[in-house]
Amino acid sequence: METFVFFVAAAICLAGALGVVLSKNPVHSALSLVGTLFGVAVLFVAQNANFLAAVQVIIYAGAIVVLFLFVIMLLGVDRAENLSVDPLVGQRAAAIVAGVAIFALPVAALATTGWDATGAIANLGSVSDSAVPDVEGIGRVLFTRYIFALEITSILLAIAVVGAVMLAKKSPKAADMIVDLPARPTSTDADADAASADATSEEGTA
């Protein structure tokens, strides 16, 4: 049963990931991202991480992707990107080579260990012990061993809120500094704009 679940969820994950990278329209990328996040949540459930699966769906699929879609709609950048133009000659081929290497290196390292984890000893609490639910185990670890890290994340969240408010203000100095970009009208931009105008109008009527 777990094998079936694994292969279905893995197919959803990989299809969603490829959709994120290959979709011309950012909206389609965001919706593909939901597929990947859902597949990862299913794999969490398959590994008895029920709390994390719920958090994954609520925070990632519920909040973060909605934030992405909100920004896409707010800015009106839901236009197609011309993927056939290679802005830097050879960069795309180099990126694919780098991607294959990034995939192959961990798999090779895993193969040298005999497809098993290294022999570290568990000391923070058991996952398989059904007497202790995973929520209780995570909470116990967070508020004992990782208490300082937990406090630092609260500071991080406060800083993120302040930063977002500063960036979103109407005429903040920081935002003025980063948005004064030199104009760069090129022929490829004009082509992309013409293509995007069609896509935008289609989105509008849909």
Partner: peptide, 9 residues
């Protein structure tokens, strides 16, 4: 899960 350690979660 492999190491049976809740720290990863």
């Amino acid at each position: 899960r492999m190491l049976d350690d809740i720290g990863g979660q």
